[in-house]
Computed example of a mutant assay.
Amino acid sequence: MNASRTPLFCDTVLAERIERAEARLMAECCEAAQRGDSPGFVHVLAGGVASFAEDGSPYNKVAGLGFHGVPSAADLDDVEKAFAAHGAVVQVELAHLADPAIGVLLTERGYRLESFENVLGLALDGEYEPVALPGFVIRRSGDDEFEQWLEVVADGAAHPDTQGLPWHEEFPREIYLRAQRHSAAAGEQHYVAVRDGAFVGGAGLRVSEGIAQFAGAATAPAHRRRGVQSALLAARLADARAAGCDVAVITTQPGSKSQQNAQRQGFDLLYTRAVLVKQP
């Protein structure tokens, strides 16, 4: 981290880029699920997407709203009916930099605030190098190692860090594993931390139109507080810069260890998403 750097300022233009990348990720993960015969859907909605991958999936949500007009009542009716047909809630993740009229509209339609999540970002305008972590090897994970990578991140996710506010989404292991497979099909790259020949941590990186999205980070409980996630973050920063990205983003729960690690690496809090939910 460069102490003299200028913090990244997030205006509506940058927020729209990040939200567009998030919406594209949701759409591509749902399309991957549908290739596996999932009865899901992806609907374009006022510049964002409403997506449903399968029952209980983390990709069942509305993302990217607020930067291309306010959705019409008819469009929202259609989206709500589509989710209701699957017996699913409608979950909207709305950036606080989005058009405020959307929050008013959703509240009038019976949506209730459930939680928040933070979006942090870093301008990739410097030189980034992987960091050595004594006793560990930090590297890209190949496709032939995907099952090993998947097991370690699933085990880590099953034992979340308790620092900060509780994460608003928790999923059964089987659902989590399938969701990670859909992310991989949508182009997510994987990184692993190895100690004594065993995988002890993992993380993901997806590149979309100059935005580097950091995801899938988890460390086995016995190996936490040793710098594993910071080292995985540094490796992904170097690769994101090399891939031509100008901004890296990570989504965390407020006040979490993940947020603390990101800020230590120079990430700035850009904006918060409100999670608004309507029951079917």
Results as ranks from 00 to 15, higher is better:
Pro172Thr: 07
Gly197Lys: 11
Ala98Trp: 02
Gly66Asp: 06
Ala101Glu: 02
Ala53Ser: 12
Arg206Trp: 05
Val89Ile: 07
Thr251Ile: 13
Val44Phe: 05
Asp143Gln: 12
Val192Ala: 14
Gly121His: 04
Leu76Val: 05
Cys30Glu: 00
Glu54Leu: 14
Ala220Asp: 13
Arg112Gly: 10
Glu22Cys: 00
Glu114Phe: 09
Gly255Trp: 02
Val49Asn: 06
Ala198Ser: 14
Ile102Trp: 02
Leu133Ile: 12
Glu19Met: 01
Asp75Tyr: 05
Gly202Tyr: 06
Ala274Val: 01
Gly202Leu: 10
Asp196Glu: 15
Ser115Cys: 09
Pro58Asn: 08
Val228Leu: 03
Leu106Met: 04
Ala193Gly: 14
Pro7Asp: 00
Ala193Asn: 11
Ser141Asp: 12
Glu188Met: 14
Leu105Glu: 13
Gly210Asp: 02
Arg241Trp: 03
Asp246Pro: 00
Leu124Ile: 06
Lys278Glu: 04
Val247Asp: 01
Tyr176Asp: 13
Gly69Glu: 07
Glu28Tyr: 01
Cys30Arg: 00
Leu205Met: 05
Ser51Trp: 03
Ala50Tyr: 04
Ala274Leu: 10
Leu8Val: 00
Ala179His: 06
Leu237Phe: 08
Glu169Val: 13
Gly227Ile: 12
Ser141Arg: 13
Glu151Asp: 15
Ser57Trp: 03
Arg140Ser: 13
Glu108Thr: 11
Ala98Gln: 07
Val137Ala: 15
Ala95Gly: 10
Ala203Cys: 07
Ala179Lys: 01
Asp155Trp: 04
Trp149Arg: 07
Tyr111Trp: 08
Arg139Glu: 11
Arg35Tyr: 00
Gly210His: 05
Ala235Arg: 10
Gly201Gln: 09
Glu169Ala: 14
Glu145Lys: 04
Gln259Leu: 05
Ala154Cys: 15
Leu106Ala: 03
Leu269His: 14
Val247Gln: 00
Ala186Ser: 08
Pro7Gln: 00
Ala184Tyr: 04
Val119Ala: 02
